[in-house]
Design a protein around this nucleic acid. Structure first.
Lengths: 344, 344
DNA sequence: CTGTTAGCGCTTTCAC
DNA sequence: GTGAAAGCGCTAACAG
């Protein structure tokens, strides 16, 4: 079933059918009625491949995430999809853990003629996205904090988020505040770590470099690093982490040591994934609002699409501190600096 | 850049270029070499819209899940995507919480000319998938346990999984075993509940109907129903749940009551989402293996594609009991049947 | 072994 | 207000 057939049945031309479907105003109402009736009768489903082939637009946006095992990205996908459905577009989702996979993902996006792409994969060098830009696909990065011709960016305001979080910890009485970040070599790792340093200094407490560690944005990193942190002579009384998985891993690692949040260590995560509310104890965290982030991405995408010749825009999304139960005043520490164990 | 241009540069026809790209053997090696060289030089990316338009095949499979907020589906997507990439196909992912959204999802799949679709959305009547079948799109459902012409099914063997879980609980000494299921009205809810009943009877313990409740496959349901369960005169000493989110909710609800797993109640989940290992205490659960499930889905899809005129196949995937820390022998209960509270 | 060609379904000129 | 027709890029049938 195609437009020609619809046209035949309605006694018009396929051009008119196209005009009716696409809401062109220059069709006489009774003609349009007749066409719509047939459309309805046969439950017509148009074939966008034809349009994509002819005009190179696909009504599809690509979304490249580093890892669907991190619930944050699944949750973001949901928010982004909702937005795109409203404007009658499709999402092409790919996960790209490694630079090689990223390259393949980009190639697939290019094949499918996406109208734009949101790139959340942090592990990439600028070279790999060049093909996108060269082919004038509007691109929006998340958290690169730099824009190019045809390439916008949406960043998350870790700076303010961390200031708020550190202020909360300091107000509880913490002065030895640690940080478990992401893996080395990613730009966003630097950004988050710098935001932490800034926040610490801004709060008037001392920055202890030995309390800053590199995790991997996964549970395992949080677990490993909290273990290391708690074993140093003077462990922190509170930590911030680069994301919720790291924080959850830290809570887990703490537990393995026979210690507990917030009793032995206050923990603040980042993202506010759904399960952070459910884990025991519920995680205090810095929420990255998915809806607003998705909206900003779409806005940036639209901008770059409309102004593909000019520099993209830089947008920023604010976070929100969610205080749950992994933050509390520091426990009084014994003179020796040794950890006393609570029975489990 | 298209095949004609490649052909021009290589001094051949576009048909030959097509043959080289698609690995047809009937091209002379030196000709092929020449073409490949040009292909490489210009970093040629073919345009599948043309093929889709001409032949109606898109190298894309649809995946319809009920909810991306449930990490299980995100994790499954990852497994399914990996499989499809290997065979050079695309996934079109849509989430369809409601019957209306499902209808729209199916329409979108049809528009994009998917070669087949996996339907994990449980809330649907057969009518809504009819358009797919009528248009001869190979379909694979998960957990419908019924096949049709052009429609296969992959089911998860809850029966054996629940038997194993109940046996584990009974061996720990439990006899009052409860169940928090999914929402009423879904077929999979019935299947899981029946599997539970069967397992209980098979283990030779008494089935107490008042210990079987309806949740909603989400955290909130587990929380709500565990509260109800623990308030009845003789609460269960252990429960199974319809999925991990429900189990996590139950653990959470228990905590709100000042009670703890496994001390006051043993809990076994279902799915083994990534975070069930991290939550405190780590959740004992029945693992639904994503990779094997994804493989089975693809196999079923392929079967129905190859035999679109005949009935689909019915496959089954086994689960695996993962014992972590939410299961333990039942606590001795006081004579009064009242709950004693442990200090938190 | 290689080239020529038709045609998939759509939208957009350009006529009328 | 409506219709005729071109052409997007690809591949399979057919011709040579």
């Amino acid at each position: 079933m195609n437009m020609r057939e619809i046209a035949r049945r309605a006694g018009v031309s396929s051009a008119t059918v196209s005009r009716v479907i696409n809401g062109s105003t220059i069709v006489r109402e009774d003609t349009a009625q007749r066409v719509r009736k047939v459309l309805e009768e046969v439950q017509f489903i148009p074939n966008p491949s034809a349009t994509t082939l002819k005009y190179g637009r696909s009504k599809t946006y690509g979304l490249i995430v580093p890892d669907m095992l991190n619930p944050f990205f699944a949750e973001f996908f949901g928010a982004f999809e909702d937005l795109l459905i409203e404007i009658d577009h499709e999402v092409l989702l790919t996960s790209a853990q490694t630079p090689e996979k990223l390259l393949k993902s980009i190639r697939r996006m290019l094949m499918r003629q996406v109208d734009g792409a949101v790139l959340m994969a942090s592990e990439f060098d600028t070279k790999s996205v060049e093909p996108l830009l060269r082919r004038r696909v509007s691109l929006t990065t998340v958290d690169r904090r730099t824009v190019h011709v045809g390439c916008s960016d949406v960043s998350i305001d870790y700076e303010r988020g961390f200031v708020e979080a550190v202020r909360h910890l300091v107000s509880l009485g913490h002065t030895r505040i640690g940080y478990i970040g992401g893996m080395k070599g990613l730009y966003t790792t630097e950004v988050r770590a710098n935001a932490f340093k800034l926040a610490i200094r801004g709060a008037g407490v001392i920055l202890h470099p030995e309390l800053m560690r590199h995790g991997n944005y996964r549970v395992s990193g949080g677990e490993r690093e909290v273990t290391a942190l708690m074993k140093i002579a003077e462990p922190p009384t509170a930590i911030l982490t680069a994301n919720d998985l790291t924080a959850l891993g830290a809570a887990q690692g703490l537990h393995r040591l026979g210690l507990f949040a917030p009793h032995d260590l206050s923990i603040i995560g980042l993202d506010d994934i759904l399960l952070s509310e459910v884990c025991q104890p519920p995680l205090s965290t810095i929420r990255t609002p998915r809806k607003r982030l998705a909206k900003a991405c779409l806005e940036a995408l639209d901008f770059s699409k409309a102004n593909i010749e000019s520099k993209g825009i830089q947008l920023s999304v604010l976070t929100e501190l969610i205080v749950r139960e992994t933050t509390a005043p520091p426990r009084r520490r014994e003179r020796t600096g040794k950890i006393s164990r609570r029975k489990s």
